[in-house]
């Protein structure tokens, strides 16, 4: 029964990893951009939520009402003023600019918030749980986190395939020049995609902060988890990303059970294993 419990907890943590990954997946799908600072933005969102909670006394989960719109506005501006200038055939500029952003964010957070780790306190929901099986209790917070992850991925999927914005994303991703002929300015489309990505980042950041301690240097680790979930699940498949996150979460949970030092390592090794045997991921997008 102990293993059932470990796997279930791993699945629930996988939801958080899918939240880390969903934004990455979206941005890559629309504009082939990989944002090295993605993890740092997640951490920055957690700090932003911390500030909002300190200022207003809101429950961190409700701070999303403030944090998500702010993050989206920031994402729009970031894409419009900086990242759009780096897009082109050469992959170096976007990579190096976002790498620079990563360093700026980490050290900016360090300068403002010091290296002390912090936590968002969501109250009783953090510790409350209900028994599913004997010896297997489901915490309300991990469950909520998983449900939110599923909802976010469903929402992105819906938006992608059933709305005008989603059509614009797909058309621009297919062929940005022909999209111009439809009146779609790729720079604006990209800015909207980044805004959306940052909205998801904000949700991920708040759940990260509620679940565990965070400090200014946690970003790269979150980027790597998100990235691994994307690759395990298969590029361009959002539901695959969710499964990728779950696989990563379960691998880490099993690794941690064997030896606490192996938690993160186990996840990396499963990722490398998938890369070795299924380089396109487990659920690659079927080409039309």
């Amino acid at each position: 029964m102990i293993w059932v419990n470990i796997i279930i907890q791993g699945i629930l943590v996988g939801g958080l990893y899918a939240l880390f990954a969903a934004g990455l997946s979206l941005i890559f799908g629309v504009m082939r951009l990989v944002n090295i600072a993605h993890g740092d933005f997640i951490v920055a969102a957690a700090f932003l939520a911390w500030v909002v909670v300190q200022a207003t006394g809101l429950n961190p989960l409700f701070s999303l009402i403030v944090v998500v719109p702010l993050a989206m506005a920031f994402g729009y501006a970031l894409q419009k003023w900086i990242l759009n200038r780096t897009l082109g055939k050469d992959i170096l500029p976007p990579l190096l600019v976002t790498f620079g952003l990563s360093i700026i964010l980490q050290n900016g957070l360090l300068a403002v918030f010091t290296a002390d780790s912090r936590k968002l306190n969501a109250g009783v929901v953090e510790t409350a749980s209900f028994p599913l099986l004997p010896d297997v209790a489901i915490g309300y917070l991990p469950l909520l986190q998983f449900i939110v992850a599923v909802a976010v991925i469903w929402g992105l999927q819906y938006l992608f395939y059933n709305t005008a914005l989603g059509r614009a994303f797909r058309a621009t991703s297919d062929d940005s020049e022909t999209a111009l002929l439809m009146g779609l300015d790729q720079r604006k489309v990209y800015a909207w995609a980044m805004a959306l990505c940052m909205g998801v980042v904000a949700i991920a950041g708040v759940f990260l902060g509620v679940r565990s301690n965070f400090d200014p240097f946690m970003g790269p680790g979150r980027l790597i988890f998100g990235f691994e979930a994307v690759i395990i699940g298969g590029l361009g498949n959002l539901w695959g990303t969710l499964i990728g996150g779950v696989i990563l979460g379960v691998s880490q949970a099993i690794g941690a059970q064997i030896n606490p030092g192996w938690q993160v390592l186990a996840g990396h090794l499963v990722f490398l294993l998938v890369l070795a045997i299924r380089p396109k991921g487990l659920f690659p997008r079927i080409e039309g």
Binding site: L95, I224, I231, V264, L265, L275, P279
Partner: peptide
């Protein structure tokens, strides 16, 4: 292994490898 990843994903893939080395060294 890392050559299976393209462009920017190659970059993060190499990072994962470095993390694996670091975590193994710590063991």
């Amino acid at each position: 292994l890392v050559f299976r990843l393209q462009g920017a994903y190659f970059a993060i893939g190499t990072w994962v490898v470095a993390e694996v080395f670091r975590l193994v060294a710590a063991q």
